[in-house]
């Protein structure tokens, strides 16, 4: 697979070995390949230490892989860029700026005309349900609202790909469900390619059109699924989908898969 001719996001046989400053090394990723068409939503799931965040950091361009390469629309990724937006778990908003200024950060850095940017921000504020909060400092918002700002800030920049690193991980269960609905809605409306890292099996199943389960030591793709739930989620109620037999069956299958991996890791300590 050579990503150079592809449209979309291609992870081409990426391996990552971290050399530790004190000697020794950690084999974080081994021969990971992915091919994402434009507009696909991929969830990445796996036990801690399986290298999913490393993978995301490589796609974002924060880390250079030891072997292999990442291509977006035929261009090799060599560093962070506005074409690949990122939504972190929490604490990546600029607390010295209000909601509006956070959202308009990308366009302002690019020197876009203020009028156009203002209209875009107004539009995004409404989409994420923060219409009245534009002038609030971000630190006065709840965790869920802050993540809405983070989503809007990413969208304001109109990236081709949105990378999400546990974006809902710090939220309470109810807020999390609501935000999952918002992510689906945004995906549908914007048609962006999304890579979502999560360790919630339910979230990965519900949001991922495609789902990869990664295994640790070294981090690699263990199993891949194509799922109908994200598509269903656009029309049906999330509770119905999550309570359906098909959903539950998949959930249990993946949960026991991950449990086994965790057991393997912890095994040495238990016995």
């Amino acid at each position: 697979m050579t990503g150079a001719n592809h449209n979309g996001l291609v992870v081409d046989d990426v391996s990552m070995v971290f050399t530790l400053p004190g000697g020794g090394s950690v084999h974080a990723l081994n021969n990971v390949s992915l091919d994402l068409k434009s507009g696909e939503l991929l969830s990445v799931l796996g036990p801690s230490g399986c290298g999913k965040t490393t993978l995301l950091n490589i796609i974002a361009g924060f880390l250079a892989p030891t072997v292999g390469a990442v291509f977006l629309n035929g261009n090799q990724v060599v560093g962070p860029d506005a074409e690949r937006g990122i939504v972190f778990q929490q604490g990546a908003l600029f607390e010295w700026l209000n909601v509006r200024k956070n959202i308009s950060f990308g366009p302002r850095m690019a020197g876009k005309p203020a009028k156009e940017t203002n209209e875009k921000v107004d539009h995004l504020l409404n989409i994420v349900g923060l219409g009245d909060f534009g002038d609030k400092p971000v630190y006065q918002l709840s965790g869920g609202m802050q993540q809405r700002v983070a989503l809007a800030r990413c969208l304001a920049n109109e990236p081709d790909v949105i990378l999400m690193d546990e974006p809902l991980g710090a939220l309470d269960a109810l807020t999390r469900e609501k935000m999952q609905g918002l992510v689906l809605k945004l995906w549908k409306e914007t048609g962006k390619t999304i890579v979502l890292i999560t360790h919630s099996v339910e979230e990965a199943l519900f949001l991922g059109e495609r789902l990869i389960v990664m295994a640790p030591r070294p981090g690699r793709i263990h199993k891949e699924y194509n799922l109908p739930f994200a598509e269903q989620g656009l029309t049906q109620s999330p509770r119905d989908i999550k309570a359906s037999a098909e959903f539950i069956e998949k959930r249990e299958e993946i949960l026991s898969m991950i449990w086994e991996m965790e057991e393997e890791i912890m095994g040495g300590m238990d016995k």
């Binding site: 560093g79 860029d81 990122i86 010295w96 950060f105 990308g106 800030r153 920049n157 990236p159």
Partner: peptide, 24 residues
Amino acid sequence: SKVHAAYSLGASKFQVLKNVILPN
């Protein structure tokens, strides 16, 4: 994560210095 977010939003090194590192 703030520095990474700024670079991913298209900020240059100087913009990161002025708009993230300085206010931070």
